[in-house]
Nucleic acid binder design. Structure first.
Length: 147
DNA sequence: TCCAACCCTG
DNA sequence: CAGGGTTGGA
């Protein structure tokens, strides 16, 4: 689900998990999961962006995440260990864009500002996609999340 | 006062 | 991921 939505609202979560008996705890826990997911995501992005810079990359446009990318493997390993489903192209596009944003920010020295990541978070938070209905029709039970 | 989001840690 | 602490907005 994270491949489609990075910032799901509690109402969206409830809509996609009709079999879950939501209460304050369960809801905040799911919200917390996505918060953790985002942290991992952004940490990887920053890591690879800095690596690209040290590797001498100068054009952000060169930073496109493909299915055979190192970064893709890291992300897929984290969110889709068992390759339970195919990662959507929309995610690759947003991930690439995120990487480019980090690249531009770091290479222009904006990372000196304590809150330099905020602008990036704001951009990415507006790029959530709709989640396919299939996920709602219990085709994928609890595979959306795993422990 | 509540809570999503963030930061830091284990 | 889970915990615990902080924060800004409703």
């Amino acid at each position: 689900m994270f491949f489609f939505t990075r910032y799901p609202s509690s109402s969206l979560l409830k809509a996609y998990f009709p079999d879950v008996q939501f209460n304050r705890c369960i809801t905040s826990q799911m919200i917390k999961w996505f918060s953790n997911f985002r942290e991992f995501y952004y940490i990887q992005m920053e890591k690879f962006a800095r690596q690209a810079i040290s590797d001498g990359v100068t054009n952000p446009k060169m930073l496109v995440i493909l299915r055979d990318s190192e970064l893709f493997r890291a992300l897929n390993m984290h969110y889709n260990k068992g390759n339970d489903f195919e990662v959507p192209d929309c995610f690759l596009e947003i991930a690439s864009l995120t990487l480019q944003e980090f690249f531009k920010a770091v290479s222009s020295g904006k990372d000196a500002d304590p809150s330099w990541k905020k602008p990036i978070y704001k951009i990415i938070s507006k790029l959530d996609s709709d989640i396919p209905e299939i996920f709602k029709s219990s085709s994928y039970p609890q595979e959306l999340f795993r422990n």
